[in-house]
């Protein structure tokens, strides 16, 4: 796996280091951008603390975002929500069969799907420094940090995969503005530390005088990369209609490896179409 990530990083590095002598352009035509994105995607995960099965969900995604550009910095706030059904990848149509009867002699067979839902949410705040060497080129680079809280909340007959992580880590952004209308962007981020909440080994949350939510979050603990690794790559294309309005397409690929209390891995990929206003 390592050589694959190294190859990606190398190709991106070549692109960035050669981009120093192009005419100056800002990242955005104006200082503020606010937008909405809708999309679809796939989330695949396996949580060995609960199940040997690989689950797959194809949730619908909604993203609200705000970007601010100053002379030296970029700032971003974004809220992502994903909602969809979820089921084991190789057993998508599971049916449960209950035989019910009462003392009056009534009997009834009930069959219904053993389905589940996935709700995933993420609130992110990022601050980035526009690297001086790339300031005057069409290909730009900014480096910074991002604080993000992610909730991964599958519900069904098991709670396979559930976690919440408040994480902090570096992020690198690049943008290539081909002309006044077309721009391409990419980002890579890697949380270095996280306040992680997971179900314990016993997969339950009940404890005295605590709600279910309180029981779950009371077990949160700070972990490093060894227990929470979640690199994310995003790619985007934007078309600027005029200085105030634009639209675009985004692709995001994220990978999670959580080692608490047992291994959970997930891959998330999303395609989103966005529409934004600048002022």
């Amino acid at each position: 796996m390592k050589w694959k990530f190294a190859a990606i990083a190398f190709l991106m590095a070549i692109s960035i280091t050669r981009a120093q002598d192009l005419p100056m352009r800002r990242w955005m035509p104006t200082h503020n951008r606010i937008g909405l994105a809708l999309g679809i995607g796939t989330v695949t995960y396996q949580d060995k603390n609960t199940s040997p099965l690989i689950y797959r969900s194809r949730p619908t995604s909604l993203r609200l975002f705000y970007n601010l550009e100053s002379d030296r910095f970029l700032f971003s706030v974004d809220l992502d929500l994903k909602l969809g059904s979820t089921a084991p990848k190789y057993h998508p149509g599971r049916i449960l069969y209950f035989q019910e009867a009462d003392y009056e002699g009534n009997a009834e067979d009930k069959k219904f799907p053993a389905g589940g839902t996935l709700l995933a949410g993420r609130l992110g705040l990022g601050a980035y420094y526009k690297v001086a060497a790339a300031k005057e080129s069409a290909l730009k680079l900014a480096v910074g940090a991002r604080v993000s809280n992610e909730l991964f909340y599958p519900q069904g007959w098991t709670s396979s995969g559930m976690f919440n992580a408040l994480s902090l880590g570096p992020e690198m952004l690049t943008q290539y503005r081909a002309n006044d209308h077309h721009s391409f962007s990419a980002s890579v981020r890697l949380p270095m530390t996280a306040l992680l909440a997971r179900l314990p080994y016993d997969n339950t949350v009940s404890s005295p005088n605590k709600t279910q939510t309180g029981g779950f979050f009371s077990r949160s603990q700070w972990v490093g990369l060894k227990k929470f690794a979640a690199p994310t790559l995003t790619l985007g294309y934007n078309y600027q209609f005029n200085p105030h309005w634009g639209a675009g397409l985004n692709y995001e690929l994220g990978w999670y490896r959580i080692e608490q209390p047992q291994t959970m891995k997930a891959v998330n990929s999303s395609f989103l179409a966005n529409f934004y206003h600048q002022f």
Binding site: K4, M12, R18
Partner: peptide
């Protein structure tokens, strides 16, 4: 170069779900 990196990344990531998740 950007497009090459992007497509290489997507291809590599998409083609190795088994490596990224594991198997049953």
């Amino acid at each position: 170069a950007i497009l090459l990196a992007a497509f290489a990344g997507l291809f590599i990531m998409a083609s190795c779900e088994k490596d990224l998740i594991g198997t049953e």
